[in-house]
Design a protein around this nucleic acid. Structure first.
Lengths: 251, 251
DNA sequence: TAGTGGTCTAGACCACAAT
DNA sequence: TTGTGGTCTAGACCACTAC
């Protein structure tokens, strides 16, 4: 390959492919040229072709499947919108956002009773070893997994009530359920970080390893008392987080 | 290298180094073994040593400097906390958060008058070509750049007032400045996405290319009227975004 | 001058997919 | 059987850094 601009060959090839992906010439799901084809087309070694593909993969634009090839990863509604509309409505907190975006939403869950780990205990302001109800969720949009989360509720709050099991009570949604037992959620804290997906998360989300995700720690409060805390993990290239914060009137 | 567990050698080496970084044996800023040393220690080719280092680099744990080596990137307060405390106080909106974290905070800026691009016009609900005041900021914590942002204010709102130039008026901070001219900010929208840093952003932030960043679009509103909109870019492995959302009382 | 990481070549063997 | 990407070897030249 003729190396102009002083830019390494693998970056030039990556730039070219990226452009084709972003402007639609390589459509979503399309197979990108194989390593062999890139070698021939640009007159470079396989290493260089592989490096170019590696750049796009770490950018989350493509994924590679051994024996098949590499394919464009961007979906049409590339970024799904989640949000902060915490209202006193009986609605599943996140799944409804997905469904309102025109996607069929469903989810699976598993609820178990267990002792609080030190980390969870600190977030719920309880003592490590106290009983909590842990519910693990996996959300699907049009049948594809797009979110995993794990919710923890102290049994000192929900134990013995008919909303003890989150998904089997008369109402759904943390706020509505807590209302039902006389606990009024006042605010929700969300703590957003970005990192690469853990192996098990990548597996559950059906994404390649090392893809970037948002890790959101969400806690519902009644004044200073945590009512529930939840770990939410979503692929960051599929999501846009939307927050609306009121300006305090106090001076 | 003896390949047990069926795990590729480069991932085993990466795992080993990652463990040493996370548990502190390789401290922040420390030099990790060179490629040559990894080759000798594990009896692998340079390619494999390089791949192991590449894994850690894409995870943001290390950076490499040609001619010197690779170094641990995690700082002690690895994640700086920014937030959503939008109050009617005279304080720089983001820099104060950094300084409260025990870091010396300063910033540079440049203000220019220009015509609104279509994108900016849409966000400010004005007509493309309308005059806006654009201010580009770069924030430093302990002398190191940690945030770049670009703010746009419609001159139809601030033009001719003494807060027209954001950094040269009698008060600072969007909310306080708007108060000063009788505009009451009611809420702030923040729109969070994650992506890799653009070349110029990486340069301004002094980070390697392809590092992940948070891209935050922030807009101050007075009811339905945008008062200001701002593009904020921060390295996502240095930041933790904290949001507190009140639960609406209406049923 | 010696060591470092960045780039690149030219091969190799493998498991897996498609046919 | 052929093509694919995943892994890996054994080199090379370069620019930059440290001494």
């Amino acid at each position: 390959m003729v190396n102009f601009e002083g830019k390494p060959a693998y970056l030039q090839i990556a730039d070219e492919l990226r452009q084709q992906i972003l402007d639609g010439r390589l459509a979503s799901g399309a197979k990108i040229p194989s390593e062999s084809e890139l070698m021939a087309a640009h007159d470079v070694s396989r290493t260089v072709a592989k490096m170019a593909i590696g750049v796009l993969r770490t950018e989350g634009l493509i994924y590679s499947h051994p024996g098949k090839g590499s394919f464009v990863r961007v979906g049409e509604p590339l970024r799904r919108r989640t949000g902060n509309r915490y209202r006193r409505q009986a609605q599943p907190p996140f799944a409804s956002d997905a469904s309102s975006a025109g996607k069929r939403a469903d989810w699976e869950f598993e609820t178990v009773r267990e002792s609080a780990s030190p980390v969870v205990a600190e977030r719920l302001k309880i003592t490590p070893g106290d009983q909590v109800m842990r519910t693990s969720y996996r959300y699907f949009a049009d049948g594809k997994p797009i979110q995993v989360s794990t919710s923890y509720e102290p049994l000192s709050i929900t134990g013995g009530t008919d909303i003890e099991l989150p998904e089997e009570g008369p109402v759904v949604g943390v706020i509505a359920r807590m209302d039902h037992i006389g606990r009024r959620a006042t605010h929700v804290d969300e703590n957003v970080t970005a990192r690469t997906a853990r192996d098990h998360e990548a597996e559950q989300l059906g994404i390649p390893e090392n893809v970037q995700v948002f890790a959101i720690l969400r806690t519902h409060f009644e004044a200073e008392t945590p009512l529930e805390t939840c770990d939410i993990v979503v692929p960051s290239d599929r999501y846009e987080l939307v927050y609306r914060i009121p300006v305090e009137e106090s001076d």
